[in-house]
Amino acid sequence: MGLANYILMNKNTPVLAFEYDMEQHKATRITRTECLEAAPIGIHDRRGEITKSEINYWWAARAIPASRAQIDRLLENLNLASTLVLAEKSFGLSLSDRYWLNNEDDPKTWEEINFFDNDFTDDLGFLTLGQDSSGSSPDAPDYANINLSSPNSTLGGDLLKKWKIVGGKRILLKAGVGFVNQEPYNEVAATELHSRLMNAGEYLPYTLFEDGRRVYSACENMLEPDEELIAAWDVIRNVKQPNNLSELQFYVKRCVDLGLDAHEVMTQLAKMFVCDYILANRDRHYRNFGIIRNVETLEVTRLAPVFDTGSCLWSNVELLEVPADFLYKAKPFKYGGMKPIDQVRLFDGYFDWFTSDALDGYTDSLHEILSKNPNIPERRIKTVVDEVEERIGVIRRVMR
Rank of each mutant, 00 (worst) to 15 (best):
I369C: 09
N186F: 09
D97G: 08
G259D: 08
T83E: 04
H285E: 02
R32T: 12
N102R: 09
H25V: 14
F116G: 11
S53I: 13
G42F: 02
D352M: 06
F333G: 00
L74S: 03
W314A: 01
L36D: 09
G135K: 02
K253A: 13
K372R: 13
V344M: 04
E247Y: 04
D142M: 13
R391L: 04
H194T: 06
M9C: 10
D276K: 08
E210R: 14
F273L: 05
F273E: 08
L313Y: 07
K162Y: 13
K161R: 13
M222Q: 02
P377I: 03
Y277G: 01
G157F: 00
I41P: 08
A140M: 06
N103C: 08
A63W: 07
R293T: 02
D352G: 01
S246H: 10
L78G: 05
G167E: 00
V274N: 01
F116A: 09
E183V: 09
P205K: 00
P65H: 04
L3K: 15
N152R: 10
I291P: 02
A38Y: 06
L155P: 07
A280N: 03
Y277Q: 03
T207G: 14
T383Y: 05
Y335K: 15
E88S: 12
A140Y: 04
V15N: 04
A61N: 13
K11P: 14
E378V: 06
K26E: 15
V274T: 12
